[in-house]
């Protein structure tokens, strides 16, 4: 054994040296480094999980937003249609009202015109009767009973009117 260089004091020295190194490395290097590696692994796992969750949530909220958007769109569509309907109805009503008013106005105007015309015709007839009498007086140069003439002319005019009508 001596020729191979193996001797008990040397062997024990090396064993003790290795054990000391083992203890130092365990305390100083492995323990803190492993703890940190574990901690980091945990952190990464938690981070990945959180990211996954966030992704899911984002997808979910995206869906919700889309849904809401769809709802709002249909709601808007409905509102527009309703508004258009109301507007149409309102216009119809207004138009009808206006038309009615116009009709009333026109009929009123027409009756006024009729009345005016009647009055004018009456006036004209009266005037014409006076004129005719005066003209006749002048023509015949005779003084006739004014009463009798008027009746005569009236009769002629009435005859005329009934023929006209």
């Amino acid at each position: 054994m001596g020729d191979l260089g193996i001797n008990l004091p040397g062997l024990i020295t090396q064993i003790i040296s290795f054990v000391i190194l083992f203890v130092i490395l365990s305390k100083v290097l492995y323990k803190p480094l492993m703890a940190m590696l574990d901690q980091r692994a945990e952190k990464i796992t938690a981070g990945l999980e959180a990211a996954e969750k966030a992704k899911e949530e984002a997808a979910k909220s995206e869906e919700a937003i889309q849904e809401q958007l769809q709802e709002a769109r249909s709601e808007g569509q409905k509102l527009v249609t309703q508004a258009r309907e109301i507007a149409d109805k309102f216009r119809e009503e207004e138009m009808a009202k206006v038309r009615e008013e116009l009709d009333a106005e026109r009929s009123r105007a027409e009756s006024n015109i009729q009345r005016e015309r009647d009055a004018a015709i009456e006036e004209l007839r009266k005037e014409f009767a006076g004129l005719a009498i005066t003209a006749a007086e002048k023509v015949v140069k005779t003084s006739l009973d004014e009463e009798g003439h008027r009746a005569l002319i009236e009769g002629v005019l009435n005859e005329e009117r009934s023929r006209n009508n």
Binding site: I6, G10, L11, T13, Q14, F18
Partner: peptide
Amino acid sequence: TDLNMSLAI
């Protein structure tokens, strides 16, 4: 290169 060392380990 010392057998003591390798034997110790």
